[in-house]
């Protein structure tokens, strides 16, 4: 089986790798490149634990052949922030109690980022809609949505729409 040479930008770094035709992006990331932050929950696109950003959009890395990311830009949770410099979403997830078991967290963070990148001030409904492909069994989603909303608000220096909602 001929290997395929691909080049793509992973977390801001250009990478060249050889992949088998049937290698999935999730396995390339986890097993070859050691980026285990991206999780396998169902393997069939039904849970979103494997979510990464492909050219800025949230996608299921368990459903993508690695060969397809040739020429693309991929961001995983490892590219979002680090111990020293957390992404605002990561800070908010910690502060708001959006993390319980943490298995859905990396995918959830990336779905949130892909939303905020195109819609800096989403409503709670829009947030819920955008993370609907990321299953969480622990939190009931409330604190996850709170965390995303908090970042959206901070970004715009606006009065938090949640507070406004609670005041109704």
């Amino acid at each position: 089986m001929d290997k395929i040479k691909i080049q793509f930008v992973l977390n801001g770094e250009t990478r060249q790798v050889e992949v088998e035709p049937d290698l999935l992006l999730i396995d390339l990331l986890r097993e070859r490149l050691g980026l285990t932050g991206t999780k396998v929950g169902c393997g069939e696109g039904d849970c979103g634990a494997c979510t990464v950003l492909l050219n800025g959009k949230n996608v299921n890395s368990c459903l993508l052949l690695a060969a397809r990311v040739n020429g693309c830009e991929v961001v995983t949770v490892e590219g979002l922030g680090s111990y020293d410099k957390l992404h605002p979403l990561q800070e908010a997830f910690i502060a708001e109690g959006a993390v319980q078991c943490g298995f859905c967290t990396p995918g959830m963070l990336l779905s949130a980022k892909s939303l905020l990148d195109v819609n800096a001030r989403p409503t709670r409904e829009e947030i819920a809609r955008h993370i609907a492909g990321n299953l969480c069994r622990c939190t009931g989603y409330t604190k996850i949505i709170n965390a995303i909303e908090k970042v959206a608000c901070a970004d715009r220096h606006c009065a938090c729409s949640r507070e406004a909602e609670e005041g109704r």
């Binding site: 069939e44 039904d46 849970c47 993370i131 609907a132 969480c136 009931g140 989603y141 409330t142």
Partner: peptide, 17 residues
């Protein structure tokens, strides 16, 4: 026996708590 057929609540299904 998969998440396409065994359905968990998504973020759009849960109520305000």
């Amino acid at each position: 026996c998969n998440f396409a057929t065994y359905l968990l609540p998504t973020s759009l299904d849960v109520p305000e708590i």
